[in-house]
């Protein structure tokens, strides 16, 4: 059987990621670290793009779902890993993906729990409820001793590598793209454009919004798992409101609801963040100024040259 073109692309990316990853020992560790950060950022941004960009639901709690996934996945590898008595390779190639999946599922459940009641709220209200949810997650994590409380969770094995980060990123992009590029998927865009009209055309808008929210949360959770096993420790404070904003900014700079633009924005922002490090303490000042200037001059996003193309499936 011949795979559709889009799936061929996915396979190609996975193979390349695997190939490059095999030689990661020869890559400068700093570059490797940044590259993995880029992969995670693409996952975060593309998954949030489904919610904020394509479906038009403004979520400010993406870091919260990421935290849920990060902790779930890290708890699995740290508690179950040592007891299994198998080689590190098995842990990295079997237990780790399972933990990522778990992290994604728990985050998706959280997404369902938050989304189902709150998605009937619109615009700013939804933004603030998701923000509130993110803060609640943070406070809960700070208070649960089993996951390290405010001190954080340490000693997480470093299973994350180039292959996993870019495979996950590729799958995320593929899923978001695939969902949208179908007659069914145009419903997400219709919901974003005019909810009342969408409902009148027979679209179950609630279901679309929840689907977007749950799928988006799932990948945020998986990204969280990757992040946990990249950094080796987790700290509830790292998943605060500012982290959510960082992801939102990627989506907005990428042009809200554009696949490639958002990927580029994720890459640029991670790299920019690293570059600004040489400015040391002034990094955040420059970052915020940049944000304001961009909104004033290019509110439609940085990386939008063409208008959204209608696609034949």
């Amino acid at each position: 059987m011949v795979l559709p073109k889009s799936q061929l692309w996915l396979v190609v990316v996975l193979l390349v990621a695997g190939g490059v990853s095999a030689f990661s020992g020869r890559i400068d560790p700093y570059v490797l670290d940044v590259a993995m950060g880029v992969g995670i950022a693409i996952t975060q941004a593309s998954s949030l793009n489904l919610i904020n960009g394509f479906t038009g639901q403004f979520s400010l709690g993406h870091a919260g779902f990421m935290a849920v996934g990060a902790y779930s996945s890290a708890m699995l590898t740290t508690t179950l890993g040592p007891k299994l008595g198998v080689s590190t390779a098995v842990l990295q190639w079997v237990l780790f993906p399972a933990s990522l999946l778990l992290g994604g599922l728990v985050a998706a459940l959280a997404g369902l729990a938050v989304g189902a009641p709150s998605l009937r709220l619109k615009g700013d209200y939804l933004a603030i409820v998701t923000l509130g949810f993110g803060e609640i997650i943070k406070v809960i994590l700070q208070n649960v001793d089993a996951v390290g409380g405010a001190r954080g969770l340490v000693g997480i094995p470093d299973y994350t590598n180039l292959f996993w980060t870019f495979s996950v990123a590729a799958v995320t992009v593929y899923v978001v793209w695939g969902l949208l590029n179908s007659t069914y998927g145009r419903g997400f865009l219709a919901v974003a454009d005019d909810e009342v009209a969408a409902e009148a055309m027979g679209l179950n808008t609630t279901r679309y919004k929840i689907t977007a929210f749950v799928v988006g949360s799932f990948f945020a959770g998986v990204a969280g798992g990757l992040y946990a096993h990249l950094k080796g420790y987790l700290n509830p404070g790292g998943f605060d409101f500012n982290k959510s904003i960082e992801i939102v900014v990627m989506v907005i700079l990428g042009g809200m609801g554009r696949h490639v633009g958002v990927i580029i924005a994720a890459i640029v922002l991670v790299v920019l963040n690293e570059t600004l490090r040489s400015f040391g303490e002034y990094r955040m000042i420059l970052y915020s100024l940049l944000l304001i200037v961009l909104m004033l001059t290019r509110p439609q996003g940085l990386f939008t040259w063409t208008r959204r193309k209608p696609s034949a499936a």
Partner: peptide
Amino acid sequence: RLFPSLSVFD
């Protein structure tokens, strides 16, 4: 109340 940003086709 069309879907303004969607194409006519969509």
